[in-house]
Design a protein around this nucleic acid. Structure first.
Lengths: 193, 193
DNA sequence: TTCAAAACTAAGCATTTGCTTAGTAATAAT
DNA sequence: ATTATTACTAAGCAAATGCTTAGTTTTGAA
């Protein structure tokens, strides 16, 4: 992997410090998280940060990848393995609330937070990572909807669109509403499907 | 209104420059909007800004009030005057998409954007303004739901919760999804009510 | 044991942030 | 016309931002 000879060993594991950075970005967003804050949270010097990840933007990009990996393990894989059709999607919604739990209120989804914060002037690399992730989730939702053989493809497409937007809604709403209101939302959302 | 004698006249109308500030905050969010950007957009000097509104936070607070006023005129009053029950709420959803239109994608709702950006460490004054606004919308939604005499109060409460979260969802989703996906969302969202 | 490569520490860089202040111009009352 | 009061311009402030660099320590290979 490393072609050049290693003179002095790194005193940290990049994957480990990135997970800490990710949690900070998740709680605070991109702009509000300063390099000094990252330094403290990651437990490494700015020099090390820049030599490992290039710049703040690089740290963020790796944090996003870390988030995707975590979400895949704790959310998407469960959805994939579910065998109860739409009910599995509903469980995904409930799992997401647990996944994004913080003190009292929730942190939302890091990727949704990012789109919401940076909007259209988010850079293209980050944006494509986000779109890839969203597309992936959507495809799994479609697969679960397809287990109901009654549904035609147009209905499935519409319902998948609907569920994706609902998921975004849940992400933001979980940052300001109480548990009960979120559950009312999930239950109502799945009533018509 | 003004008790002290006016020595030199202000060269700007506070309401006018605040509307410009509001649009800037709406597009960019609180942190990303710098005082220098506000200066340019509002067309007044920093000194004038600070003497009129105290600080950046004050400009933002007035911008929020301005947004609420605009939303009331263009959205809430229409909802209030509607006589077709749930259909009126649905029209509110469609009107919101128009209301928050920008270049290509949408700007979302300024208040939702703010909660999403500042989260729990948004200051209490701003937070209470936001909550007051959300409560107001919710009460109007409930009124429209109540026109259907078949529905008991528990159902109405649950459906109102559901619609409020859906509205948040629409706000965020409109910043990243295309028109068709948003319409699929609205149509599906109202199917079960 | 020497030495070059890599990783550390810590100080410092230019720029931008929100905000202030010194000095000048305009206005209404005397 | 004088004067007090307000509003303007523009320069400047400390602090924070993302990032760099000079100097030291650790390491594996010769």
């Amino acid at each position: 992997m490393q072609l050049v000879i290693m003179a002095r060993k790194k005193e940290y594991i990049e994957e480990e410090v990135i997970e800490k950075a990710m949690n900070l970005f998740w709680r605070n967003g991109y702009e509000t998280t300063s390099v000094r804050m990252l330094e403290k949270e990651m437990g490494i010097n700015q020099f090390s940060m820049y030599s490992s990840f290039g710049n703040k933007h690089g740290v963020f990009l790796e944090s996003i990848k870390c988030y995707k990996k975590k979400a895949k393990q704790e959310l998407i894989d469960k959805l994939k393995e579910s065998t109860n059709g739409i009910e599995g999607i509903k469980e995904y919604f409930y799992n997401f609330i647990e996944f994004s739990k913080d003190t009292k209120l929730n942190k939302g989804c890091l990727l949704t937070n990012t789109v919401n914060e940076l909007g259209e002037h988010a850079d293209t690399i980050i944006m494509s990572e986000i779109i890839k992730f969203a597309t992936d989730i959507k495809s799994h939702i479609i697969k679960k909807l397809e287990t109901d053989k009654q549904k035609d493809s147009v209905t499935i497409a519409k319902q998948a669109n609907y569920l994706m937007v609902s998921l975004q809604g849940l992400s933001v709403a979980s940052k300001m509403f109480e548990r009960q209101q979120l559950e009312d939302f999930i239950e109502s959302a799945f009533k018509s499907l």
